[in-house]
Structure formats: structure tokens, C-alpha cells
Amino acid sequence: MTTFIEIVRRDLRLSMRHGMDTIMVVMFFVLVILLLPLGVGPEPTVLARISGGMIWVSALLASMLSVERLFQTDYEDGSLELLVIQPFMLELTVTAKVISHWLITGLPLLIIAPLLAGMLHTGKDGFAALLLTLAVGTPLLSLIGSIGAALILGARQGSILLSLLVLPLYIPILIFGVSAVDAAIHGLPWRLPVLILGSLLIGLAPFSVWATAAALRETMRR
């Protein structure tokens, strides 16, 4: 358990010390949202109608961009090899890395999202749904993204490849997240999609961690 916490703390410390990770992710997120009114016009009704989808799409892209670095730096400086061969279970190491990725990138998105929702005139009914779906959905994004991040280590044109691998797998998260927000905006019940997201998180977490660990072991064998 101490090893587990130590890995999380190490990643957080590294990102605090020289990482612009959090700032970059939030900046990207805000920039995409800024582009939206410039693209479709400033009409509040139009913005309100598409705000749930836009916030979710930009959160998805921001998470995907940041997850590439989840193992990349460790892979380049060789510390990944130590993480794989140490006696501590690799699956737990992966879980720790995913949690720290969520703390560095997912949590800031969650904090900034209400502000952006306000700027897009989402309306207060959508607020709770947006926050709740993002709170359940962003860990899922980190989990699925970690599989892609582990698979592309050492590949040619890794970042483009990552988007090709990960974005199709993100689609269910996007659909359930947006449908909950849209239902809430229209005053409809939105419990079911949130529950589905929650069960996806519980169901896919062990599998994703296993797949990421398997991919990391293969990387070390190459």
C-alpha cells in the first residue's frame, strides 16, 4: 500500500516540479470551448443546446492528448523498466499511475467545467448532470487512454496512432455523458445514463488495468 501511495506521490511531485501538464490540459480545454462561439455564433439558445456535447468532446480530446505522456517519460528515461520488474504487482502500479493521471488532468477539468458551462449558458439544470457525468467519466477516459498509451510505446507516429486507437473506444463514454446532460437540460430524468457510466467504470476498470499491464510487459520484452 505504501508503494502504491509512493507511486502516486512520485507522479504528482514530478508533474508539480517541471510539468506543465495540468496547465496545458486546462488551457487546451478552455481554448477549444473558446473556439465554439466563434465558430457557430454567440446566440445563447444555440450555445446552450450544444454546450453539453461540446464540453464533453473537448474534455475527451484534452484527456486523450495528456494521456500520451502517462508512460512516455518513464519509458524514455528507463524508469518504466524498473516499475515492470520490481516485485510490486504491475497491475497495482498501473492503477496508481492512472489515479495520478486523473488527479493531474481529470480533476482540473472537473473544476473548470462549471465555469465554461456558465459561459455557454448551459443552465443550472444541466450543471449537476455535467459535473456528475464528468466526475464518473473522466476516470474512465484515463483508464481507457492508459491502454492506448501503453500500446504505442516505441511506435512510429505514436500520437496520431493513439488517437486512432483510443477515440473509437471513448465513444460510449461520450454518448452516455452527453445524453445525461441533454436530458437534464430538457428537464427529463437523467439517472440512467449516469448509472450506466458508473457501471462501465466499475466493470471496465479491472480489464483496462490488466490490458495496460499486459501491454507494458510486451513493451519491455521488445
Partner: peptide, 22 residues
């Protein structure tokens, strides 16, 4: 794309196998 992204063809196959299961 993942199959052909590595210099080592067997490594690419193994990565792609994990992706197919996922």
C-alpha cells in the same frame, strides 16, 4: 496501423493482439 507501427514485426503483432481483445 498498430501492427505495422513497430520495427519489430512480432512486437507489433503482440500489441495488436491486446488491442483486438480490448
Amino acid at each position: 496501423a498498430l501492427q505495422d507501427a513497430f520495427d519489430n514485426a512480432e512486437g507489433g503483432s503482440k500489441a495488436a493482439a491486446i488491442l483486438a481483445l480490448v
